[in-house]
Design a protein around this nucleic acid. Structure first.
Ligand SMILES: [Zn+2]
Length: 286
DNA sequence: CGGGTTTGACCAGCGC
DNA sequence: GCGCTGGTCAAACCCG
């Protein structure tokens, strides 16, 4: 694939050179700009590579955790499996074998309480326990210490009024202090307030701005990806791995989105890359 | 002064 | 009924 890339690059260069003879200075400036862009893109590529490495490590850790959880017998959930908690479950369904297979599922609470997704971030042990900037604005409303985990658990709620009932709990991992486990409940019904909108010119008069639209669609797609998860605890262990793959994909996507949103340089580069050339060419025409 | 964080109090399940 | 524990409330406090 390297030759192909080189070929494409050289083709582009030759194309630019062909335009050269008409006005040399413009080509020179264009080449300089292009080189600068190339440098920026290279830097960005390196950063993305680093992010990918981090995400890969995170994925590996999650996968290990998942395998461990699947191996652990569901009956004992003492200190062996501190990370998982099935959240509230129907209180009587813990021992269905006890009284035959009676139809005592009357109090089967509607399992569509909310979508619960648990993702884990890798952050520094210093700037954690603060508002985790994942693209949304959160308001902390509580903090408790749990018994199994010495580190406290923070309770957050979406800053948007009761219109958005999304909540999340953030707690460090038991042993790895650099891991934050965030449990999201619900789904946002509004656009993420991308704070620090330092983009040079979001849009002027146009119906849709390129950068904003792109980011929005990306986030929405990411949100839609985690539809409703009502997988009960009775899931077979064999199929557990199967359903794990798409979910972990979602995890990776969310982490990538969070990382990208957190990085202001990336937004600047993205904006520059998306309509930077357009900006450069528009005034020339006018 | 408005909004967010802190932090102790309060409450609801749940096991014994 | 009682104590434990997770989840929430809200008053106090902090900060721009
Ligand atoms: Zn929200």
């Amino acid at each position: 694939m390297d030759p192909a890339t080189k070929l494409g690059c050289s083709t582009t260069l030759s194309l630019d050179l062909s335009v050269g003879p008409t006005s040399f200075s413009i080509v020179d400036a264009s080449a300089s700009i292009m080189e600068e862009k190339l440098n920026k893109l290279t830097e960005e590529n390196r950063r993305l590579h680093e992010m990918l490495s981090t995400m890969s490590a995170n994925y590996d850790a999650l996968h290990n955790q998942l395998l461990d959880l699947m191996r652990a017998p569901p009956s004992k959930r003492g200190t062996a499996s501190p990370a998982i908690e099935r959240k509230r479950e129907s209180p009587d369904s813990d021992c269905p074998v006890d009284d035959s297979s009676e139809d005592s599922y009357k109090r089967f609470r509607v399992d569509s309480k909310s979508i619960i997704s648990r993702i884990s971030f890798r952050t520094d042990p210093s700037e954690t326990s603060l508002v985790v900037k994942d693209g949304y604005q959160w308001r902390k409303y509580g903090q408790k210490v749990t018994r199994d985990n010495p580190s406290p658990r923070a309770y957050f709620r979406c800053s948007y009024a009761p219109s958005c009932p999304v909540k999340k709990k953030v707690q460090r991992s038991v042993e790895d202090r650099s891991m934050l486990v965030a449990t999201y409940e619900g789904e946002h019904n509004h656009k993420p307030p991308i704070q620090g909108e330092g983009l040079g010119r979001p849009n002027r008069g146009s119906a849709s701005s390129p950068s904003s639209g792109s980011l929005t669609s990306f986030n929405q797609k990411m949100t839609v990806d985690l539809t409703e998860e009502r997988k009960e605890a009775n899931v077979s262990r064999r199929s557990c791995e199967e359903i794990a793959s798409p979910r972990l994909h979602k995890v990776v996507a969310e982490q990538m989105a969070a990382s990208l949103v957190k990085d202001p340089d990336f937004r600047a580069s993205l904006a520059n890359a998306i309509f930077g050339r357009d900006f450069l060419h528009s005034p020339a025409q006018n």
